[in-house]
């Protein structure tokens, strides 16, 4: 059952990923990205990370896709949903990317330690553990993250405002 789900989700994800980079229309590209992110949420469920899957679906996919669509709509001269997304230098880019993929896959499949790894028995209350992790071990990262969010919000407003100071 898990194997079937993995194959289906992985195939969806690779297909959607190719859609993201091959789509001629930028709006279609953004929607392919939505498909890829939703398939990733399914994989997180398979990995027993239910909380991450929910965050991925509700916050990440929703937020990022909305932002991207806003970005597309705000930066085009003519109205409508036909936004060209032309590609160039396709052959060298494909060569470079497949070389990189080959290197990574070779490294993954030739590392004996990875093959021996067994899945740890899942913990039922992983959201509780995540919360405890954020507020004890990772407290500094958590606080820095909130400062970073504030800085990014101010930065985005300053960059994108209409009038000069």
């Amino acid at each position: 059952m898990n194997a079937i789900a993995f194959i289906a989700l992985a195939a969806t994800q690779v297909f959607a990923g190719l859609g993201v980079v091959r789509a001629k229309n930028l709006v279609h590209s953004v929607f392919w990205l939505a498909a890829a992110l939703i398939a990733t949420a399914g994989l997180y469920l398979l990995l027993h990370a239910a909380f991450i899957a929910m965050v991925q679906l509700v916050l990440y996919t929703g937020g990022v896709i909305t932002l991207m669509l806003f970005g597309v709509m705000l930066t085009q001269r003519e109205s409508g949903t036909k936004v060209p997304n032309e590609a160039h230098r396709e052959v060298p880019a494909a060569l470079g990317a497949s070389l990189l993929a080959g290197t990574m896959l070779t490294a993954i499949w030739s590392t004996p330690d990875l093959a021996e790894r067994e899945a740890v028995a899942n913990v039922a209350t992983d959201s509780l553990l995540i919360g405890q992790g954020f507020l004890s071990e990772q407290l500094l990262a958590f606080e820095l993250l909130s400062v970073l969010l504030l800085a990014a919000m101010i930065g985005a407003i300053v960059l994108a405002r209409r009038t000069d100071p």
Binding site: A10, L33, N85
Partner: peptide, 24 residues
């Protein structure tokens, strides 16, 4: 799977001229 997706993204960054296309 993650390596393949990452390389798909690398390809997309390399070929696109549109800034939002690169971001996606």
């Amino acid at each position: 799977l993650a390596a393949i997706l990452f390389c798909t993204g690398v390809y997309g960054v390399l070929v696109h001229r549109n800034a939002v296309g690169v971001l996606v």
